[in-house]
Amino acid sequence: MAVQDYIRKRFFPHLWCQGCGHGIVLNSLIRAIEELGIRKNDLVMVSGIGCSSRITGYVDVHTLHTLHGRALAFATGVKMSRPELRVIVPMGDGDALAIGGNHFIHSARRNIDMTALVMNNQIYGMTGGQFSPLSGPGVKATTAPFGNIDHGFDVVKLATAAGASFVARTTTYHVHQMISILKEAISHKGFSVVEIMSQCPTYFGRKNKLGGAVDMLDYFKSHTTAKGSDAHKKDPLMIERGIFVKEDRPEYCSDYDMLVKELQLKGDA
């Protein structure tokens, strides 16, 4: 199927600003789905609230646009009742790790089979540029005009510690890597987390005088490096990209299914 067959063309041009990274995520995501040959009818995308979460409006698969921070909770309901469906949960940084922080760590702990995307632009775009738990110190935001003093989460470390069995990071500049990581994450059986560093030129870029979308992509290119590379050993401030965790671990829906079968056997005996 062609890439264009996976989108709801009637809603284009989309509402994201000029150069918004979320459009690049959408672009890579539908290519990954297309390359994996997933049927539209076998795929559910569940999102919460925010600029990032509008992505479910544009994909022509089963979609749920739910409550702020609660996408993973709704997705858990979908997966538990229809475990044969593939579930992808695209979230923004605030949606995933502030409002939805608890759902995030507990979904990781259970290792439920779904793909959580953290489209990390370090800011709340839709509500007007407030700092998020991924902004980090020194960042300027509408709610931190003199510079943020909050430290940010490291999504990769957080997801790993919470028990996700697949954890990766990439950026909207590295589209080939994004497509290949998304393919692996979607194919992985268990809770997979992909952090995608994404640009919000309108708020994050403007507030922090980072230029436009092109400059922000150039920044991702020059300030990130492949996991374990020499560049990272020389300069530990370089952000690592790649797959950090990929392990086979008991998956929640399979365990639940096994438990039910065991109890049924006991009941029959």
């Binding site: 994201w16 979320h22 690049i24 959408l26 589209v175 080939h176 992509l217």
Partner: peptide, 10 residues
Amino acid sequence: MECELRCPDL
């Protein structure tokens, strides 16, 4: 294909 893959607006 870099342009096609990186266009945020498809």
